[in-house]
C-alpha cells in the first residue's frame, strides 16, 4: 500500500474513533527488548506479537499520542510535497506547533513508533538521519527530487565520493558498469581504494560507511544488490566492532526490528578476519577491556550462530588481537589492491 494511503487511513481511523465517542487510541507494536525476536529463517530480528495501546483515555499517553499523530501529519506533508527532513528537523519543526518534544531522543522515538505502526521505514516517510555515507563508482543515477528530475550523475564525479542523502536514496539507477559493491569502514581506506583505482580493477562500487553503516547506506547497497544483482562485500577493521558492522549489513539492526529493515543476507564479510592478522603478518594490537566485552556480547547474539561466524569469534578469542584496515599499508600502499583484495574477492 502507498505510504500516503496508510497515513490517510490512520487519520480516518482516529476521526472515526472520536465520532463514535471513543477516546482515540493506537495499538503500537511493542518495541521493547522482550518483544524483539530473532527469526533464524530470515536471518534477522523481527517484532513479536506484543502490542502497546497508546490511548487518549490515559492522561499519561495524551501527549505522546498527539506527538505520534503530529509526526504522521508532517510525514504526509513531506511525502506529498516531495520534501525531506532529518530527524533533527523533526525535533525542531515541532517547536512551531502545539506538540513539543523535550529532546531529540523523544522525537526519534516517536518516529520509530510511527515506523512500527505503519510498517514503513522512516525514509519512506521523508525522514532521514543526520549521518551520511558516501559512494563512489561506475554508476549513473537520475534524481527524482522536485527540480532535479532530469539531472543525472555519474558517481565518479567527485574523488571524495557522493553523499548518500535523501536525493540519492530515491534516485533511479540509469547505467551501471560495476559488478560488485564493496562497503568500506574507514575513510582512509576508502580514499586509498579510489587512489589505487580499485573501482576499475575490481569493477566495484565503493561505499564508505564511516563506522556502523547508516540505514541509508544499507538501503542503497540493498537496492544495488536487488535491482542490479550486484554482490555485496564488507571490508572493515579486524576487530569485534568491524565484525558487527558487517553483521548489521547482512542481518539488519536490532534497533530497527520494528520495520522490514534492510538486510542483505548474501553479503559477505571479507576482512580483516581474525585469521588474516597472522596470515598477512599484519601489525596488531592486544584486545582491550572494551574489545573483550564486545566480543562477549557478540558471542551471545543469536545472529552469530552460523559456523562461519562462530569460527570468527572463536579465532578472536584465541588470539585476542585486532588490526585496523590501514595495517595493510605496512606492506606498501598498493598491497591492499595488489594482494589482499584480489585474494578476498574472487
Amino acid at each position: 500500500m502507498e505510504v500516503v494511503e496508510k497515513l490517510k487511513r490512520l487519520g480516518e481511523e482516529i476521526c472515526t474513533q472520536i465520532e463514535r465517542g471513543e477516546y482515540p487510541f493506537l495499538d503500537l507494536p511493542s518495541r521493547t527488548t522482550n518483544n524483539i525476536v530473532y527469526d533464524p529463517e530470515r536471518g534477522r530480528f523481527t517484532l513479536g506479537e506484543a502490542k502497546i495501546r497508546r490511548s487518549t483515555s490515559n492522561l499519561k499517553h495524551l501527549r505522546s499520542f498527539t506527538q505520534t499523530v503530529w509526526v504522521a501529519w508532517i510525514a504526509k506533508r513531506l511525502v506529498e510535497e516531495g520534501k525531506t527532513a532529518t530527524l533533527r528537523d523533526i525535533y525542531y519543526l515541532a517547536e512551531s506547533y502545539k506538540v513539543k518534544f523535550k529532546d531529540q531522543q523523544e522525537s526519534d522515538s516517536i518516529v520509530a513508533d510511527l515506523e512500527a505502526l505503519l510498517g514503513v521505514p522512516r525514509e519512506k516517510l521523508g525522514i532521514f538521519p543526520e549521518e551520511r555515507a558516501t559512494v563512489y563508482g561506475d554508476l549513473t543515477i537520475r534524481y527524482n527530487m522536485p527540480g532535479y528530475e532530469e539531472h543525472t550523475l555519474k558517481l565518479t564525479a567527485s574523488p571524495d565520493g557522493v553523499a548518500i542523502g535523501p536525493a540519492l536514496t530515491n534516485a533511479t539507477f540509469e547505467d551501471c558498469g560495476a559488478e560488485k559493491v564493496v562497503m568500506v569502514e574507514s575513510g582512509g581506506m576508502f580514499t586509498r581504494l579510489i587512489e589505487e583505482k580499485a573501482h576499475e580493477k575490481f569493477k566495484a562500487i565503493l561505499i564508505h560507511t564511516a563506522g556502523q553503516a547508516p540505514r541509508s547506506a544499507r538501503q542503497f547497497a540493498y537496492r544495488l544488490n536487488r535491482e542490479l544483482n550486484l554482490p555485496v562485500y564488507i571490508f572493515t577493521d579486524g576487530d569485534p566492532w568491524g565484525a558487527h558492522i558487517a553483521m548489521v549489513v547482512i542481518s539488519g539492526s536490532a534497533n530497527a526490528a520494528h520495520i522490514d529493515d534492510v538486510a542483505i543476507p548474501g553479503a559477505r564479510w571479507i576482512g580483516i578476519l581474525p585469521a588474516d592478522i597472522e596470515e598477512y603478518r599484519l601489525p596488531s594490537e592486544k584486545f582491550n577491556e572494551k574489545d573483550w566485552k564486545r566480543l562477549g556480547e557478540l558471542t551471545a547474539d543469536p545472529r552469530y550462530q552460523s559456523p562461519f561466524w562462530r569460527e570468527q569469534l572463536r579465532k578472536f578469542e584465541e588470539t585476542g588481537r585486532k588490526a585496523e584496515q590501514q595495517a595493510l599499508s605496512a606492506h606498501g600502499l598498493s598491497y591492499v589492491t595488489e594482494k589482499y583484495l584480489p585474494e578476498k574477492i574472487s
Partner: peptide
C-alpha cells in the same frame, strides 16, 4: 491536546 489531535487526524484523512 484533543482539539489538536482531531485537527491533525482530519487533515491526515483529508
Amino acid at each position: 491536546y484533543l482539539p489538536e489531535i482531531a485537527r491533525l487526524a482530519a487533515e491526515l484523512a483529508g
